[in-house]
Design a protein around this nucleic acid. Structure first.
Lengths: 134, 134
DNA sequence: CTCCGTGCAAATACTTTGCAAAGCG
DNA sequence: CGCTTTGCAAAGTATTTGCACGGAG
């Protein structure tokens, strides 16, 4: 059916790159990460595969940080923290529960499937920096 | 202080446009909305003012929907629902309690100031459409 | 006169896409 | 051979920015 014929070493590498980091990378990050090992990799391919993974639900989008979409290879329900200063993204475990989806669906007549929770503020590292300065 | 010298009719119009709709508009939407009344309004001005409002905390960003940033003139704490099909944005009441922020801040050593909760799925209208088709 | 706000257009930045070549079964 | 994947470069879309002009104090 939906089975891929062509296994594609590059595709696997892209997926592994996303899964193998806690950085919640952007397309460009993945590209630069793999470029040394795959000199003929193209940015378009990275974008194409990430879009595919996302629509397949294999990875999720954390949202847009400083104009770049960021991805997460961990699909278990958890929240994120985004630093407004440096744009780093942090996993937050055990955030508010996502079973509110059904309640929202009922109350608003929609069909809510996912619930993304994003905290925003200043990360530990950026806080230290501003303390040193101030 | 930070007081504006030049009041600017256009700036007020832009803010009112965002506040006066439940659509959670994009910059372009605001532009097209005001263009008839302000024929010499430029898109750059809309972007500039929205960015200003946002950094002043007068409006908030709902996030990026289909590549466009969407804004909300209501700054009281509440959540949002985004339709993956048509991109419409809905206010969801009873949103994030601020005490999760302090808990996250404590546990992760960050300084979480805001918590954005976004539900995603299919809106009532889009659901009807697909029912008719299917 | 001095500043701020703006129009306009050019510049950026990110992402998508068309097409021919290459890979896998 | 048939279908998928990719490199490359061009195109597309959203947003930002430089600069000179116009209005308010």
């Amino acid at each position: 059916m939906e089975r891929r014929q062509n296994y594609s070493r590059k595709r696997e590498a892209i997926l592994n790159a996303v899964r193998g980091t806690k950085l919640h990378p952007s397309a460009e990050w993945v590209y630069h990460e793999l470029k040394p090992s795959y000199p003929d990799l193209s940015l378009g391919t990275v974008y194409r595969n990430l879009a595919q993974f996302k629509s397949d639900g294999v990875i999720v989008s954390v949202g847009t940080v400083n104009g770049q979409e960021r991805f997460d290879g961990a699909t278990n329900p958890h929240s994120h923290f985004v630093c407004d200063k440096c744009g780093s993204v942090l996993d937050i475990e055990g955030g508010p529960r996502t079973d509110v989806c059904s309640e929202v669906s009922r109350r608003y007549g929609v069909s809510a499937e996912r619930c993304d929770i994003v905290f925003r503020g200043t990360c530990a590292s950026c806080r230290k920096k501003s303390e040193k300065v101030g």
